[in-house]
Design a protein around this nucleic acid. Structure first.
Lengths: 349, 349
DNA sequence: TTTAGCACTCTGGCCGTGCGAGTGCTAACG
DNA sequence: CGTTAGCACTCGCACGGCCAGAGTGCTAAA
């Protein structure tokens, strides 16, 4: 004891059978069913014994006495980590992904939106895509452009290839030349810096220098600071939330509501996704591992997407814990790769 | 016959009582209940007779024999048009609306988003806001700005006060001066025109002229045309869709799903809203009047919002047909006014 | 160690019953 | 003639009992 009980090959096969069956039927699965459907060459009684062992070591659980078994979170975890093989994505699906993302668009937001759509469509679960951020990016250039007397358009160009625009109000009217001067100064100070290095202290410093130089810029630079801060927030694109309502576990409206509310309130989701982005590779978060009660009966399969090795964002699929992991893991990985490729093509001109 | 049966004062009061009661309890209401709760000074028996009349003329219906009555769509329509009084919005709610919209923001998208949020919060139903369009707007200025070798940022400034930006790809590298020239030319031709007058024919014409003048602009102007077209699409901001799941009529997951799917597929919703925007004033669309099966058990209360008399967009609340019309109508009207005011303050500098 | 047999348990569906709410009709009343 | 009281009737729904089916754990035999 203290030792993890040995998971021999037969136990593994039985855990696999139970999980596979439960994933596709959503009903607790009994020894008889396994003996019939998966030919392990042993009788139901033997399977019963093994299942009792598996239950004792926490891989399976019984919804109630004398029902079949279902995988526990620990069971799913073991299944995902050591048993399951990724189910290759069919050529047709691959083609669909390529087609969806290949249209010649320059607007990243549209691509990301489309990614969420195709991911939801192919997974039949809910899909989320965190739009690319550029914390890892480098400040390339800022431009200021007068719109009207009290409004200035800030254009921020970040390497690789992002453009963000933002309207700010100024208390005084600035001429095009004044704006150009300010922009020039900012560019001198900021160009080439990584965004994560442009903190509020640096900005305050610059602001003071500029204050000496030209008091007109007060409102402008403050707005820019706000802008730099705010724009770090990644936006979440989502699709297919209603897909979850088809799943038997969400026939109970209370559960459905709690999950949908969780999605609507997207801060938690955002941190889940960006957490996944830090790990690299496909992450599977099962049930309460996510640390949020509303996600208790959900799992998330997520992966970051990269441009030239730099992680730009993440995407994920949320479904019931009883999820087609083998299919979804492969799908998420593939879509993340595709999105990375498309962005690479666009950004790295 | 042929004549609409007379709707005398007592029938009206009874229809009102039935509707009010059903709206707040969601249960079919019987004659006894009405006699008890609303003192009409008559006995249940009399009310029964009147209710039988109302049912015959189609204002009420019975879910099944020997249940209470509920209003039919026709009943709701009559209630909304001739009976109900708008329930004044409380000072606290007014303050909340003002506070939500009053924050000094220049970004219209954020304001619109906030409007959807506050509308959903106060109505406790689902809220939708169609972002402002500028079909009625006037082209003021275009600016072209190089981002990198093959990318140009298009900034389109529209009167009153909108700024739209769009990235386009060009096949060749254009210098800042070349871009400025092109922009200048476009400004000469387009400035002052109403957006609805800038059709594809005019653009083609300009393109030909420019082709003679400078073949470099080919990709650029084409992208601008696309841009002008695309940007006419109004975006829908929504919030509070999950609120509907609290309503007893959506405890049935199938109904809930069909409504949420309808929302997700937002083209129909968009046309409903923009239809409402054309009428002016608050519009109430009851059940199948919306012409879409999924909306059969929903109603929408919508209103356009205006800047200086020009309708810029619309907003609406969707709830069950059994909706608190008197409250929501007043709320929608007030929020539309507030949004109009805020936009006016921002746009008309 | 595996298997067969068996008694036991628990859920879900089905059915019948009773209750409550509400109706429509008829007859009496002012 | 409109209004009311009384009454029989009709549903829907919640409750409880019952049965069938699926599955288990245990024991004893192979």
């Amino acid at each position: 004891m203290g030792f993890q009980p040995v998971m021999d090959a037969r136990k593994k096969r039985i855990l696999e059978a139970v999980t596979d069956d439960y994933i596709s039927t959503a009903e607790p699965v009994g020894s008889r069913t396994i003996a019939r459907r998966y030919n392990l060459g042993v009788s139901p009684a033997t399977i019963r014994n093994e299942m009792a062992d598996l239950e004792e070591s926490g891989y399976l659980e019984q919804p109630h006495t004398s029902a079949g078994r279902i995988p526990s979170e620990k069971g799913y975890r073991f299944y995902v980590d050591f048993i399951m093989k990724r189910k290759p994505v069919s050529e047709e699906e691959r083609a669909r992904i390529r087609r969806a993302l290949a249209e010649r668009r320059r607007e990243i937001d549209l691509i990301v939106e489309e990614t969420a759509r195709i991911l939801a469509y192919l997974s039949r679960y809910a899909a989320f895509v965190l739009s690319p951020i550029s914390r890892a990016g480098v400040f390339r250039r800022i431009e200021l452009m007068p719109v009207d007397g009290q409004t200035v358009l800030v254009v921020l160009i970040i390497d690789p290839g992002f453009v963000r625009t933002h309207l700010i109000a100024t208390s005084r009217t600035l001429t095009r030349e004044q704006l150009a001067n300010i922009a020039e100064f900012l560019n001198l100070r900021l160009a080439g810096l990584s965004l994560s290095h442009i903190g509020s202290s640096l900005l305050r410093e610059i602001k003071e220098e500029l204050d000496d130089y030209n008091t007109l810029v007060d409102a402008a630079i403050e707005a820019i600071a706000r802008f730099l801060e705010n724009r770090h927030e990644e936006q979440i694109y989502s699709d297919g939330q209603v897909n979850l309502l088809e799943q038997p576990e969400f026939q109970d409206i209370l559960k459905a509501r709690s999950v949908l509310e969780f999605f609507a309130e997207d801060d938690a989701l955002r941190s889940l996704l960006s957490g996944a982005a830090e790990v690299g590779g496909v992450t599977v978060t099962i049930g309460r591992e996510a640390g949020h009660p509303s996600m208790g009966m959900c799992s998330m399969v997520s992966a970051p997407y990269e441009v030239r090795g730099v992680r730009m964002g993440a995407l994920g699929v949320v479904g019931p814990t009883r999820m087609h992991y083998s299919r979804v893991v492969a799908l998420v990985e593939l879509v993340a790769e595709n999105l990375g490729d498309v962005l690479t093509r666009i950004l790295v001109t």
